[in-house]
Amino acid sequence: MEACTSLRELNAARDSFLQQKPKTQWIAEGDNNTAYFLGNLLTQINATNITLIPKCETPTSVKHFRPSACCNLIYKTISKLLGLKLKHFMFGNDLLMFCKGNAQSVMLLMRAFSSFPKASGLSMNNSKYEVYFNGMEEVLRSDIKQVTGFIEGSMPFRYLGVLIQVGRLTKKECNVLTEKMVIRIRSLGAKKLSYAGRLTLINSVLNTLNNYWASMFIIPKSVIKRIERSCRNFLWDGSSEYHRVPLVAWEKVTLPKDEGGLGIKKADIWNVAAVAKLVNWIYSKSDRLWIRWINQIYIKNLDGLDYNPPTDATWSWKCICKVKE
């Protein structure tokens, strides 16, 4: 019994030591299984193809592409196992960092950037970094760009597939969402599918594109109509365009199945319900960094149910507050 206990303690100490290694050191040394995974596997298994996927319609530089690994199933399984050993690391992909618009705050931020390569063994690619300003003089902007070496970005910009902007979300800025749905409909090639097959694709494929945006913004009504029109046309004709009278009214189609409908979610109701989840998180003070910031800056010590946004609040915050009504 004592021998088993000692062995468990030794294994726990070894794992604790490995978790404290920098990423590059762990990859070089690894644990007891690393040598087998990296040295004894067949070449046909221990290999992958890398392809570049464009992130925009007309890419003009390397930063407009996203690398994607085309791996086989065994390779992916082994990668998942190895990834569990690296789960305590934070990677700097798609990361937004904020600071005050003064030289001192920027210098502190750059000091944190300089410590990242030392701790992780990874290097920074300055060509992929951009700095954004709001309400700052041109002289201070130039000084900050010179200190950081970053290029100045313009609003709005895309982050994790959605637009980050200052003002109201307009129909024009939502074109990317509706265009994605049209492109996806054309790629599905569902002309020969039955109505049941198209219904399944609407719920599992098309609505997921809308749900992602709907969980963060109140989408304009004109865009909601375009989304529902695309889904309706796809249901009855398998394409993005349908010029005949639908067999059943859309209001009937979007009813629950137990009420005689097909169970397709109405886009406007789903949008409000998804944003209402954010309202619940905010007023229940969920343990999330952005919610703590909202309560500290906006709500403060006020009762959330009686709170009204100030007139100079952002459009997004006003929309979230309006949902609770």
Score class of each variant (00 low, 15 high):
Met90Asn: 11
Leu86Ala: 09
Asp31Ile: 09
Met90Pro: 03
Trp281Lys: 14
Gly304Ile: 00
Leu305Gln: 08
Gly83Cys: 13
Asn203Glu: 08
Thr60Gly: 03
Phe217Leu: 12
Phe91Thr: 09
Glu259His: 13
Ala13Ser: 15
Met1Lys: 05
Ile202Pro: 01
His88Cys: 04
Thr311Lys: 08
Met97Pro: 01
Thr24Tyr: 07
Ile269Gln: 13
Ile224Asp: 00
Thr60Lys: 13
Cys70His: 03
Ser16Arg: 14
Pro54Lys: 08
Lys80Arg: 15
Trp213Gln: 08
Gly30Met: 03
Met90Cys: 13
Thr24Ser: 12
Ser187Cys: 08
Cys99Ile: 04
Lys225Pro: 01
Ala196Asp: 13
Leu305Lys: 09
Gly30Leu: 02
Asn301Val: 09
Met181Cys: 00
Leu255Asn: 07
Leu160Glu: 00
His88Ala: 08
Thr43His: 11
Ala3Trp: 05
Leu278Glu: 06
Ala28Glu: 15
Gly30Trp: 01
Phe217Gln: 06
Arg184Lys: 15
Ala47Arg: 15
Ser115Arg: 12
Lys257Glu: 02
Gly167His: 04
Gly304Ser: 11
Ile45Phe: 06
Gly263Met: 06
Ile45Tyr: 03
Thr200Ser: 10
Gly161Val: 05
Lys63Glu: 10
Arg111Met: 10
Thr208Trp: 05
Thr208Lys: 08
Lys172Trp: 09
Ser79Met: 13
Leu247Pro: 03
Ile27Asn: 11
Gly153Gln: 06
Ile27Ala: 14
Ala313Ser: 13
Arg292Tyr: 04
Gln25Ile: 15
Lys324Ile: 09
Lys23Thr: 12
Ala28Gly: 07
Val248Cys: 07
Ile291His: 01
Tyr212Gln: 03
Ser204Pro: 09
